[in-house]
């Protein structure tokens, strides 16, 4: 199975990179882009064939290493 982990800064955390990207888009004429939040994306190739197990494992590694819960949250998709 493949698990996709999307890690983003929590809403309460200012994202200076996202702000800079938004400013750049505005200067390129994309004024309708109201805000940008930058994050990280991980693809995990897992030995298991069960979606439930894949999700549990992906959550475990996200909690342990991929995300820092002080500033980040994550979302998982498996297929």
């Amino acid at each position: 199975m493949r698990a996709r982990v999307f890690v983003t800064l929590k809403p309460s955390v200012f994202d200076p990179q996202g702000r800079t990207i938004a400013d750049a888009l505005h200067s390129l004429g994309y004024g309708s882009v109201q805000a940008v939040r930058q994050g990280k994306y991980f693809e995990l190739d897992l030995a298991t064939t069960e979606a439930a197990k894949a999700k549990v494992l992906a959550a475990e590694v996200a909690d342990k290493l991929l995300a820092n819960p002080v500033i980040e949250s994550y979302r998982i998709e498996v297929e």
């Binding site: 955390v13 200012f14 200076p16």
Partner: peptide, 17 residues
């Protein structure tokens, strides 16, 4: 020390990048 939880909080990218 922050990542290890021996001190509270976390570090973000500098405000001015």
């Amino acid at each position: 020390l922050l990542e290890a939880g021996l001190l509270p909080g976390a570090m973000l990218r500098n405000r001015g990048l």
